[in-house]
Amino acid sequence: MRKLRYLGRRLAGLLGILGIASLAIFLLIEAAPGDPAQIMLGTGAQPDTVAALRAELGLDRPLPLRYLAWLGGVFTGDLGMSYTYGTPVAELIGQRLVVTLPLTAMATLLAVAVALPLGVMAAQNPNRIVDSLATAFSQIGIAVPNFWIGLLLILGVSLGLGWFPTGGFPGWRAGALPALSALVLPAIALAIPQAAVLTRVTRAAVIEVSNEDFIRTARAKGLSRRRALWRHTVPNALLPVVTMLGLQIPFLISGAVLVENVFTLPGIGTLAYQALSQRDLIVVQNVVLFFAVIVLGVNLLVDALYILLDPRLRGSG
C-alpha cells in the first residue's frame, strides 16, 4: 500500500512537472524570433499575404487561448495540425517514431549486450587484462562524441568497405533488411557511449553486490561461484544498471538528434530540429513535450521497478 501511495504521489508530481514544462516550452518557443507564416511564404511575400496566412493558421489568436487550445488538444489526443506540412502532428510524430524507436531500441540492446558481459567479466577478474580493457573501453567510450563515431563509421565502413548505406532511410515498406541495415551504423554510433557508461555501472554494481553479506553467506553455504554469480549477484546488480538506463534517456535522445543528423535519418530528432528552424511551433511544442513525457515516464518506471524489485525494500513494504 505504501508503495502504491508513493507511486501515486510520484505520478501526480510528474503531471505537475509536465504542466510547468508545457508552459515553459510554449513561452520559450513563442518568444523566439521568427514568424512561421513569413518563413513559409519566403522573402518574396508582401505583408498582407503574410497576414492572410497568419489568420489562416490561427496565429492571430491571443497567446493564452492558443496555449489552452494546445493543452486541451493534448488531453483529448488531438495534437493539432503542422503549420508547414499541413498534416496532423500526431501523424508526423508517428511517421518519425518508426525510425527513432527502432534506432534507439537497437542502440540500447546493443549497449546492454556489450556492457553486461564485459562489466561482469571485469568485476570477476579485477586488475586482469579483461578488467583493464573494460575500464579503458568505458573511459574512452564516454569521451568520444557519438556524432564523431558516426562520421568515422561512414568513413571506414560505408565509404571504405562499402557495407551499409552512408545515410538515409528506405522506409519499412522497402523491406525489413534494407531498413534495418540503414539503422545499423547509426545504432552502433549511438550505442558506444551508452555501452561505456553501462559497462562501468555494471562492473561497479557487481563488485558492490559481491561484497554484500547475503552473497558471502550464500558462498559460505557452499554455493558455487558461478551459481552465486548468476543466481544472486547479477540479478541484484541489475538494479543500478536499469536505473542508469533510465537516467541515460535524455542523453540517448540528445544523441539521437545528432546521429540522425549525421546519417540523414528522417527520425523524430530531425523533425524537432527542422520544425524549430521552420518555426513550426505546434510541432516543436508537441515533440519537446513528447520527449519530456518519455524522460519523466521512464524515470517513474525505473523508480517503480526499483521499489518493486529491491530486496532490501521488499521486506519493509
Partner: peptide
Amino acid sequence: GVLFAFPPILSAILLGAL
C-alpha cells in the same frame, strides 16, 4: 525535475532559437 525533463541538446536548440 522540470529542467531534467528537457534532453540537453534539445533545450540548447530551443534556447538557440530564442
